[in-house]
Design a protein around this nucleic acid. Structure first.
Length: 225
DNA sequence: GTCCAGGGCCTAC
DNA sequence: GTAGGCCATGGA
């Protein structure tokens, strides 16, 4: 582990934790709900996802077996609040198709190595790197860091972004600067997300950003995060 | 009325 | 390989 990087990343974590407290992510009930939530949250906020999950629960279809029985159109209607619903219905069905291989036994699916499981998840329609890593971290409890657009923006602003602006380069940054710990990775990502949502949406001009003294430019205007 | 948003797929070049 | 359009909608 890179000790200098570890110090910087730990400092960011400490400040975010002090500012926002424990996030206790993922806000889902069980690994299957986490997986469905990971697909539904693509490109939308969790508020939208909550309504969609609530609809699925109300119709008692939040299980692999029940979801297989409803058609794409009905599923699309239920998950409409999460936006891109036609696409997301296809993505959920694609995951269910994959899940059949394990008889919907998630512990059995998760028993594979991180590398093998990630590769399999990435082969499913509609599951890209971020969604695969959400599933690996929050459902399978594998120590893998999730990179999203908030992570990129915030760490660019802190001048901690990797030279190559790729998903893998960002992930390597965290993996080489932090000890592998799924609970901590989950908390860290949740804190980044909380901070990103607050800074980028609620307070685009924020003079009380908790990371301001870590920003090399020392600028209080965080609108460019 | 216009812009933007926690992602990923597809197509054109 | 990479940039841009598209999926859909609501809130600022």
């Amino acid at each position: 582990m890179n000790p200098i990087l570890n110090k910087k990343l730990s400092e960011v974590y400490r400040k975010l934790y002090h500012r926002y407290g424990p996030q206790n992510w993922w806000p889902g009930d069980g690994p299957f709900e986490v997986i469905i939530g990971a697909i539904l949250t693509q490109s939308v906020s969790w508020r939208n996802v909550e309504k969609a999950i609530s609809n699925l629960k109300a119709e008692q279809v939040l299980s692999p077996h029940a979801l297989r029985k409803i058609d794409n159109e009905t599923l699309g209607e239920l998950i409409k609040p999460s936006l891109y619903f036609n696409n997301k219905a296809l993505k959920i069905k694609a995951f269910l198709c994959y899940s059949e291989k394990y008889d919907d036994n998630l512990p059995c699916m998760f028993a594979q190595s991180t590398e093998v499981l990630r590769s399999e998840l990435l082969s499913i329609y509609g599951i890209g790197e971020e969604t695969a890593d959400d599933i690996l971290l929050y459902a399978a409890k594998k120590p893998i860091f999730v990179i999203d657009s908030y992570t990129r923006r915030i760490f660019q602003r802190l001048h901690l972004a990797p030279h190559l602006q790729t998903y893998t380069a960002y992930q390597d940054l965290f993996h080489s600067g932090l000890r592998p710990n799924s609970d901590m990775y989950g908390e860290y990502h949740a804190l980044i997300d909380q901070h990103g949502a607050e800074i980028c949406r609620k307070n685009p001009i924020c003079n009380q950003c908790c990371l301001i003294d870590l920003c090399p430019t020392g600028q209080s205007n965080t609108a460019t995060i």
